[in-house]
């Protein structure tokens, strides 16, 4: 029988079954692997690490990964806000279906998403064929990487923003209008400020997800070095070549990038709480 409750002494409470399972499982599943990665990185020594980390191919991969992810998350910062706004404020036909659809990237395996996007946006695809005559290639270029990242990072902004929008009092808008503000002023000065923390949190969450994304990108990108090769794919390729040092170094850089995003997200959430508590 699991002992789910604190025993009578605080010491015993620490070691009741849920504690043992939680800490034990996290140690084996997260901490041990993380130590393995760090140990492997450290074993290379700083100069070798730096040399591998700054190889031109790696630098180009970071560039493609981080900048494209930032652009994708940014675009969704705007479009996600529009979608969340429309879903909360307007009761249009099919709203429930659209609302459910937003979670598609959480539910759809990324490989399927990549496959589908590559097909629609390839030269001969439904949408790609409109752009081909203009000389714009989407699939198998950096634009395709961007598209895949837009796909998988969309729900984050919508889902962090929706509850905040829902809780927002419409009286505040009416009050601002009664004080003589134009609709534009109401939006800029009353509506937008409290929405900034959740929007930016969503952008950061989306960015963090896009940076690590592999499945959908690998299917829509040609993964050519210096063109549309992203860092996760580079890690994968290094592993396939049994270059464990190379894979570890790029993987560590990728991990540090994600952790930095995580710190930003924590800060943003604190900022959001500050707004919510007022």
């Amino acid at each position: 029988m699991l002992n789910f409750l604190p025993l009578s002494s605080p010491q015993a409470r620490r070691w009741s079954w849920p504690w043992v399972i939680t800490l034990g499982y996290l140690s084996v599943m997260l901490i041990l692997p993380a130590i393995a990665l760090i140990q492997k990185s450290l074993s290379l020594g700083f100069s070798e690490f730096w040399q591998i980390a700054t190889q031109p191919m790696a630098l180009s991969a970071y560039n493609v990964t981080f900048l494209t992810a930032l652009a994708a998350a940014g675009v969704n910062g705007v479009m996600g806000t529009v979608i969340a706004w429309v879903l909360v404020r307007y009761d249009f036909p099919g709203r429930r279906i659209v609302d459910a659809l937003v979670d598609l990237p959480f539910a759809l395996p990324t490989a399927v998403a990549g496959l589908a996007l590559a097909t629609v946006y390839s030269d001969r695809g439904w949408v790609g064929s409109w752009f081909a005559p203009l000389g714009v290639k989407i699939a198998y270029t950096r634009l395709g990487v961007f598209l895949a990242m837009v796909f998988i990072s969309l729900p984050f902004v919508v889902r962090t923003l929706q509850p905040v929008l829902q809780a927002m009092e419409t009286e505040v808008e009416a009050a601002a209008r009664s004080l003589g503000a134009t609709p534009g002023q109401v939006f800029r000065r009353v509506i937008l400020p409290p929405l900034m923390p959740p929007i930016l949190t969503g952008v950061a969450l989306g960015f963090s997800r896009a940076v690590g994304e592999y499945g959908s990108v690998v299917l829509i990108a040609s993964s050519m070095p210096f063109r549309d090769l992203i860092a996760p794919v580079l890690v994968f390729q290094r592993l396939e070549q049994y270059d464990y040092a190379g894979a570890t170094v790029v993987g560590t850089v990728l991990l540090l990038g994600s952790l930095a995003a995580l710190l930003v997200i924590n800060r943003l959430q604190q900022w959001g709480r500050y707004y919510a508590s007022r």
Binding site: L37, K40, F236
Partner: peptide, 13 residues
Amino acid sequence: SVSPVVAGLMLVL
């Protein structure tokens, strides 16, 4: 927050 590829890499290591 960890890229799935990096997760796999850790397990390989």
